[in-house]
């Protein structure tokens, strides 16, 4: 038996109901969790900037190698060089966040440009973008990144540029599809008839009013993807290089000791990756549901 219930009062004007009241409970939970993760990330920068870390993450303590959690003042224990895992965990997110933002910015800005070109101005651009999309799809992304690393140096920013570029066709095709859908509804034509400039139509009517939810979701997903990509590269040894802490190289370094029963050096960053990626995914998902449903009826 499924339950459906209605407002007890007569609702005459639905636009007055704030959107978080119309959103479902689960969406609210998702979004709050996502925002919590974002706050944690920002918190990491504050903690780093004001030197509030429990230990220096780079300080090597050869007397306390692989100390288990909750022992000798280290909340999450120490790693194979005696460095405090908690401090490294807190600083570790910083290896991703700014590079991730770069990847997102590249994907969103270039993707939007191409999407608008293809969707708004027609079939020629559309064909070209489809070809580029096919080209990039046929080329494994990891291979592309490894080539890049081999050609230049294993820098996280170089990697993130590639991640951003490979995401461009995804965003472009989404925006293109949305514009083609909107064009069927004639209001773009009506705006032209009104005398609005193309610039206004594209930025205000199309991107701001109708595509912002797509872009927000792509941004949150892009961040999650950047983290995953760095992790897998670190595991191969091409990601952020020691001694700079990143969750990826922490997992990689800790994994060697898993067989000895020393689980904490790799488990803590792995869990951090899991919850952070989940946070960004849920944030995008929840925002999508809330934004779309708010305006639908």
């Amino acid at each position: 038996m499924k339950r459906y219930s209605q407002y007890s009062v007569e609702v005459s004007d639905f636009s007055d109901v704030p959107f978080w009241k119309k959103a479902s409970f689960m969406d609210l939970v998702y979004v709050s969790y996502g925002i919590f993760i974002v706050i944690l990330v920002i918190g990491s920068y504050i903690v780093g900037a004001f030197d509030l870390l429990p230990y220096d993450p780079h300080e090597i303590n050869l007397e306390l190698l692989m100390a288990p959690p909750q022992s000798s003042g280290h909340f999450l224990g120490t790693d194979f060089m005696g460095r405090d895992i908690l401090s490294r965990l807190i600083i570790g997110i910083q290896a991703y966040f700014l590079p991730g933002l770069l990847a997102i910015a590249i994907a969103i800005i270039l993707g939007t440009c191409f999407g608008v070109l293809a969707g708004y101005w027609g079939s020629g651009f559309d064909t070209i973008i489809t070809y580029i999309n096919n080209l990039l799809n046929s080329f494994p992304r990891l291979v592309l990144i490894l080539l890049m690393v081999a050609a230049f140096k294993p820098d996280i920013y170089y990697i993130m540029v590639i991640v951003g570029i490979t995401n461009v066709p995804v965003v472009a095709s989404l925006i293109k599809g949305k514009i083609q859908f909107l064009k069927q509804k004639y209001f773009i034509e009506a705006a032209t008839a009104l005398g609005l400039k193309n610039r206004v139509i594209i930025f205000k009517h199309i991107l701001w009013h109708n595509c912002r939810s797509i872009l927000i979701i792509q941004a949150t997903l892009g961040m999650a993807e950047a983290i995953l990509m760095e992790t897998s590269l670190s595991y191969l040894g091409f990601g952020v290089q020691e001694p700079t802490p990143s969750w990826g190289n922490m997992v990689q370094a800790g994994a060697n000791y898993l067989m000895q029963g020393k689980f904490w050096p790799s488990t803590a960053p792995a869990l951090a990756i899991l919850f952070t990626i989940m946070g960004f995914h849920l944030l995008g998902d929840g925002l999508n549901n809330m934004l779309e449903r708010r305006r639908n009826k």
Binding site: K185, Y186, F187, A190, A193, H209, N210, R295
Partner: peptide, 23 residues
């Protein structure tokens, strides 16, 4: 452009002229 002020169209589709996401 100056003529756009003087000639306007009422579209067949009711939703046509109206961006669904604008008040």
């Amino acid at each position: 452009l100056p003529f756009r002020r003087q000639v306007q169209m009422i579209f067949q589709d009711l939703d046509a002229a109206l961006n669904p996401k604008m008040r």
